[in-house]
Structures are given as structure tokens and as C-alpha cells.
Simulated scan of single mutants.
Amino acid sequence: MGKLGDMMNKAKQMAKGHPDQADKGVSGAERMVDDRTGNKYDAKTDKAADTVRRSYREGGGTPER
């Protein structure tokens, strides 16, 4: 696995170990996109944020490649 894959795995492990902090980061990113796009894609950012949160909470998410 390359450096990007290693970094991604480390980020996933950190998020699983600190879900409250990860939630703050996801919420901040979602807010930033909504602000910059004038909420044009609000439904899509909500769906994406929920998917990301599920990936590190309760063992959910997509399988490792």
C-alpha cells in the first residue's frame, strides 16, 4: 500500500478512537462546503457527512481494499 493508503488507514483508526473529535471535523467540513456553495448541495453534504460518521462509529463503513 502506498503512502496515501497508509495515511488513510491511520486517519480511520484515529477517528474510531476519538469519534467526538472526528464529528467536529466532519461537521466543520460540511459547514464550510455549505457556506461556500450557498447551501446549494446541502442534501448531498448531509448524506456524505452521515456516511463518513457511520464509517467510524459502531464498526460500520466500507470494507478495506
Rank of each mutant, 00 (worst) to 15 (best):
K12Y: 04
K47S: 14
G59M: 06
K47F: 11
G61E: 01
M7V: 09
K10L: 07
V52G: 03
T51F: 07
R54V: 05
D42I: 14
R31P: 05
D20C: 04
G60C: 05
Q21D: 01
L4W: 04
Q21W: 04
L4R: 02
D35T: 02
D50Y: 03
K40G: 10
R57G: 05
T37F: 11
K3T: 15
T45Q: 11
R31N: 13
K12V: 06
D34M: 14
Q13G: 06
T37A: 15
G60N: 10
K47M: 11
H18L: 08
R57N: 09
R57V: 00
N39R: 14
T51N: 09
R36G: 00
Q13L: 13
M8T: 00
K12R: 11
S27Y: 04
D34W: 05
K16Y: 01
K12I: 06
K16R: 15
G59H: 09
K3P: 03
M8Q: 01
V52D: 07
G2F: 12
A15D: 00
A43I: 13
K40Q: 14
K44V: 02
R36P: 05
A22N: 01
D50C: 06
D50L: 10
R31W: 08
R31G: 04
G25C: 03
G28R: 02
T51H: 03
K16F: 06
H18K: 15
D46R: 09
A15I: 01
Y56F: 12
R36A: 04
Q13V: 05
A48Y: 09
R36S: 00
T62I: 12
A43G: 10
R65M: 07
R53H: 00
R65H: 08
A11Y: 00
K40L: 15
D42K: 15
E30C: 02
D6F: 08
V33W: 02
V33M: 10
R54Q: 13
S27C: 02
T62C: 07
R54H: 06
M1N: 13
E64A: 14
Q13C: 05
R36I: 00
R31F: 08
A49P: 02
R53Y: 05
M32Y: 08
D34C: 09
K44P: 04
N39Q: 13
T45I: 12
D6P: 00
A48V: 10
D46I: 11
V26Y: 00
P63Q: 03
V26C: 01
V33S: 00
D50A: 11
R31C: 01
Q21T: 02
M32I: 03
K10M: 10
R54K: 15
Y56E: 05
R36N: 11
D42P: 01
R53F: 01
K3V: 10
D35N: 08
R65G: 04
M1P: 14
K44A: 12
G59A: 11
H18D: 10
Y56M: 03
G59C: 13
K10P: 00
G17H: 02
M1Q: 11
R54T: 12
D35F: 04
K16W: 02
V26I: 11
S55A: 14
R54L: 01
K12E: 01
G25N: 04
R31M: 09
A48W: 07
H18W: 02
G25T: 06
A48T: 13
G59Q: 06
Q13T: 12
Q13A: 13
M14H: 02
A22M: 11
D35C: 05
K12G: 00
A48D: 07
